[in-house]
Nucleic acid binder design. Structure first.
Length: 624
DNA sequence: CTGATTGAG
DNA sequence: GATTCTCAATCAG
């Protein structure tokens, strides 16, 4: 029915302490001794521990934070580039320690590392006659690189808590807590994992300037959760036994040995288990409490929060994968959620630590707004967002070409095939008291025009074209009404990455059968310096004359100060003849006599003259 | 494939 | 359940 435990891996989970604040502290060490908070829009997204000690917390209103702690140093953290760069550097640093390449990032500030192979190797190296003077080898076949350690005791904290050990954990003497020769394999492996974790953690602090909180266990869920026991700057190992064992031939009902996994998980609120989020925990809570769980009122005013713990759920009559499946299996939900949740509740998690990926599967940029309700503003914001997005694509999807004699040449690691525009309309407030529902995002997507991959073109020109030929039409599909909308958010993203063949021939996503599909074939070895641009759905859809204008512009020799695209074709109210255009008054321009000659593609929504549709259709046919 | 939902930090 | 600005997985159609 339910799979048995598998505790053969050793997984380390890293969580950098108050990451955003640490990035600023590393940029400017003088900040380290001050209470520091990082602001995005109107909220404090995180703050350092000095600020927390003095009463601040995450996700507080800026006004509230200033009231509580007028001295607080507040820095703006809306620009995420610095965090992304720091996160990548730390991730690369940690990646150096793996042999398997299993290093997975979660957000900017968490990393899982599967060190099973290093632990296996070093376990075999143990000399049982002198365990307290062991040496941890970081590289196979190199006995010199590594560190000495005491294999008779766990490094750092443990769960369950061991007061004796913890009280002197800051001193250098280690307390022998376990004899690895006695046959408890899991214990030995966790000890090795804890020492490796400590070594990496210290390296991270000494060489990179970042402190971290670490958990060591046998899967992702447990390692992540157990790390939280000692933070910041701590590490915690979840000790065996992980399964309930009974001594002797008969179960000793008087003295059952409890699994530390259950002991550890049971006190957690059900919603604290990674993978069981707000919706799932609400549904489980409702069932266990036999009534809708109180939320806002109970939480804020009464302080009578009804907490439903993992233990409450696990011990609830009839609880198991089947009941959970019924509770969680609403239409549209992931199937098999019941077993998944049941496994998580029991600390079973067989999901692998993902291999390091060369390219993200999507990149998106967004901003939120107090009021965004007219086209000129939308246009302005679209340009800003698109500029960031194109720059992000250059940073994240471009790599230096390693071919000889190709100095400074960049090549695309992957081409996103899809461009997406999402908005979040402000909830329509009904005067008649009915609750305004659906705070959700809506989106439209379409083919990514290939001109964005042309690096010879000015970024501003690329951005302007993208806005005009792709984003404005998408915006129109999202909001066909001329007005009346008010957006609280806009997001632009690229998805559907097609990875280019890697140069060393052993690239990650290399799959011959998939690579020879038409689209991939065309994109495969395409490099920036190539003259030919892959077939472009947008440009192809344009009338011939317009295409010539674009081509003429592209072929123009750059004479020092090249005028940007929009100044050549017309600035603010420029016309892209194949698209309906927008003027600064924010009205859709409807050219009456032109209207009947236009057509919209039923597949991608592109608007074009009727005579261009045939060629456009052919493009789509080729795509399939 | 698209568009929505859920979960994560 | 929402605030910020993301990213991944997964579903129905």
């Amino acid at each position: 029915m339910t799979a048995p435990r598998n505790d053969r891996r050793i997984i380390i989970h890293f969580d950098y302490d108050c990451f955003y604040a640490s990035v600023f502290e590393n940029e400017n060490p003088a900040l380290k001794s001050l209470p520091l908070a990082v602001q995005q829009k109107n909220i404090i997204v995180t703050c350092n521990y000095e600020a927390r000690r003095r009463g601040l917390s995450k996700l507080q209103l800026v006004s509230e934070a200033k009231r509580i702690l007028p001295d607080v140093v507040i820095v703006l953290g809306e620009e995420l580039g610095r965090f992304r760069n720091a996160s990548k550097a730390l991730y690369k640093f940690i990646e150096n320690f793996t042999w398997s390449g299993k290093v997975e990032r979660l957000g900017f500030d968490e990393v899982w590392l599967d060190v099973t192979d290093l632990v296996d190797y070093n376990q075999a190296l143990l000399n049982f006659n002198d365990l307290s003077h062991s040496f941890f080898q970081l590289r196979k076949n190199d006995p010199t690189e590594g560190f000495p350690y005491d294999a008779t005791s766990v490094a750092g904290h443990t769960f369950p808590h061991n007061p004796q050990q913890d009280s002197i954990s800051r001193s250098s003497s280690a307390i022998p807590t376990f004899d690895p020769g006695s046959g408890n394999d899991l214990m030995v492996r966790l000890i090795l994992g804890s020492h490796l974790a400590q070594y990496i953690r210290r390296s991270l602090e000494e060489q990179k300037g970042y402190t971290s909180t670490v958990g060591i266990s046998t899967n992702k869920t447990l390692s992540k959760l157990v790390g939280n026991v000692n933070k910041p700057k701590g590490q915690t190992t979840l000790l065996p036994p992980y399964i309930i064992t009974q001594e002797g031939p008969l179960p000793d009902l008087e003295n059952p040995v409890e699994s530390n996994v259950t002991l550890f998980l049971d006190s957690h609120d059900i919603g604290k288990v990674p993978g069981i989020g707000f919706k799932m925990s609400q549904r489980i809570r409702n069932h266990v409490l036999s009534r809708p769980a109180e939320h806002d009122e109970g939480l804020i005013y009464g302080g009578t929060k009804e907490s439903v713990t993992v233990r409450d759920v696990r011990n609830f009559p009839g609880m198991g994968p089947e009941l959970l499946e019924k509770l969680l299996g609403v239409p549209g939900a992931e199937r098999g959620l019941g077993s998944k949740a049941w496994n998580l509740i029991n600390g079973r998690d067989d999901t692998e630590v993902q291999q390091a990926k060369k390219v993200p599967s999507q990149i998106s940029i967004e901003d939120s707004y107090i009021r965004l309700d007219n086209m000129p503003q939308v246009l302005k914001e679209l340009r800003i967002l698109t500029t960031s997005l194109v720059k992000r694509m250059h940073v994240d999807l471009l790599e230096d070409d390693d071919e000889p004699d190709s100095e400074g040449i960049k090549r695309w690691l992957a081409h996103p095939k899809t461009l997406r525009l999402s908005t979040r309309p402000r909830p329509p407030q009904n005067a008649d008291g009915a609750r305004s529902r659906s705070f959700n995002r809506i989106s439209r997507s379409g083919p990514m025009p290939n001109f964005v991959f042309n690096l010879k073109e000015n970024i501003d020109a690329t951005v302007e074209k993208l806005v005009q030929v792709a984003l404005i039409p998408m915006f129109r599909r999202l909001h066909p009404e001329r007005g009346g909308w008010n957006l609280s958010l806009m997001n632009i993203g690229v998805t559907n990455m097609v990875e280019a063949a890697s140069e060393d021939g052993k690239g990650s996503g290399r799959d011959i059968s998939r690579m020879f599909k038409k689209q991939e074939e065309v994109l495969k070895e395409w490099k920036v310096e190539d003259k030919d641009v892959p077939p472009d759905p947008i440009l192809k859809s344009m009338a011939e004359e317009d295409k010539k204008r674009f081509d003429a512009k592209r072929a123009e020799p750059s004479a020092g100060n090249e005028a940007p695209f929009d100044t050549l074709i017309g600035s603010e109210d420029m016309m892209i003849p194949t698209q309906n255009t927008v003027d600064e008054s924010g009205m859709w321009e409807d050219d009456e006599e032109d209207e009947e000659n236009r057509d919209m593609c039923h597949r991608c929504g592109a608007v074009m003259p009727a005579f261009a549709m045939a060629a456009h259709e052919r493009f789509h046919t080729l795509e399939e």
